[in-house]
């Protein structure tokens, strides 16, 4: 019985962003879109990669990626090609879920649709039988027509749809409250840094804290506690970053106080006020344009976004459903 795995990146991201290594390139060009993308690294980790590793344990050789929303008819096209069971993961949560156990539960219950839940509700992980996809309606969502059997998940799970939830996951990863490990070398008590970090000797790093690869931390800077400055950032002199996340390719001007916020280029989302402010007009922050981000996204397949798994091979494959664009990824 063939099992197909499908991962849906929410938010209607440009399809090229999925394989282009720099999802923030697209985000930067679309100012009105929600600033948070589930593909942005969390203490150096890609949540998609963590799901891929779990899917691989099911013995699945490849998965299909798409963005936006997925319709029943789009999945039905795969079902018609002989895939009998479909594992659909909406990339809206990080969950330390044993998918083998979910699969076993689904088979035992013999129900067309199983949806994983935790105490807060759906986790965006479902298993669908071919049967559930045969009577496909063009505009119906993937799992609405059949009654869903809930699979109760009691392990660690965190939604990552908002900046606040994301910051909670950062805190949990830094303190060991979940299995996600900061991607780098531990240099102190709950302090991790990535490769080639340029850390001024006068900078204060207060754990729990993560500093991503190739980030520059200048004189008099204080980072932490509960801070994550992701890869390729510059934090200028005297700035303080605490209980906050700074996303890749962000420049922060001197003397700032970044507290309880998520900074992505020039955009600052205050977790307490729930407000987004543009730092650019005041010269307080900006996007660092890397060499890769200055070129147009290529249609040529590239390698994995993060170094965590260098064996991944990205392959384009034609859409099976006509309107829905899919990318096949060999695991």
């Amino acid at each position: 019985m063939e099992l197909g795995a499908f991962v849906v990146v929410p938010g209607g991201e440009d399809f090229t962003a999925i394989h282009e290594v720099q999802p923030d390139v697209v985000a930067a060009s679309q100012h009105s879109r929600a600033m948070y993308s589930s593909r942005k690294p969390i203490v150096g980790n890609d949540v998609l990669q963590s799901w891929m590793q779990r899917i691989r344990k099911l013995g699945v050789q490849s998965l299909w990626l798409t963005s936006g929303s997925v319709t029943r008819s789009a999945l039905g096209a795969f079902a018609r090609q002989g895939i009998e069971r479909l594992l659909v993961i909406k990339l809206s949560s990080y969950a330390e879920m044993d998918l083998t156990d979910l699969f076993r539960f689904h088979c035992e219950r013999r129900h067309p649709v199983t949806e994983a839940h935790d105490s807060h509700g759906e986790l965006g992980v479902s298993l669908l039988d071919n049967l559930a996809l045969r009577a496909d309606g063009e505009n119906s969502s993937a799992t609405t027509k059949f009654e869903q059997v809930p699979y109760q998940f009691n392990g660690y799970a965190k939604r990552i749809s908002s900046a606040t939830e994301r910051q909670e996951l950062v805190g949990d990863a830094l303190t060991g409250a979940c299995a996600m490990q900061p991607f780098g070398k531990q240099i102190g008590d709950q302090v991790w840094i990535g490769e080639d970090v340029n850390l001024d000797s006068s900078a204060r790093i207060i754990g729990p804290t993560y500093i991503g690869a190739r980030t520059t931390v200048r004189a008099g800077v204080t980072i932490g506690p509960f801070a994550s400055v992701e890869r390729d950032c510059i934090v200028d002199c005297g700035t303080t970053v605490e209980r906050s996340t700074v996303l890749p390719h962000t420049y922060l001007a001197p003397g700032l106080l970044i507290r309880q916020g998520l900074v992505d280029g020039s955009r600052f989302e205050h977790l307490g006020f729930g407000t987004v402010a543009d730092l650019q007009p005041a010269g307080l922050g900006s996007r660092i344009l890397s060499r890769k981000s200055r070129v147009q996204p290529s249609k040529t397949p590239t390698t994995s976004p993060l170094p965590a798994d260098s064996n991944l091979v990205w392959e384009f494959a034609g859409s099976s459903s006509g309107s829905q664009a899919w990318l096949q990824v060999q695991l």
């Binding site: 003397g255 700032l256 106080l257 970044i258 507290r259 916020g261 600052f268 205050h270 006020f273 729930g274 407000t275 987004v276 402010a277 543009d278 730092l279 005041a282 307080l284």
Partner: peptide, 15 residues
Amino acid sequence: SPANRVLLEVTRIGS
């Protein structure tokens, strides 16, 4: 405005 409030805090003027 909330955005101004955030900028005042980020620049430490609020302190």
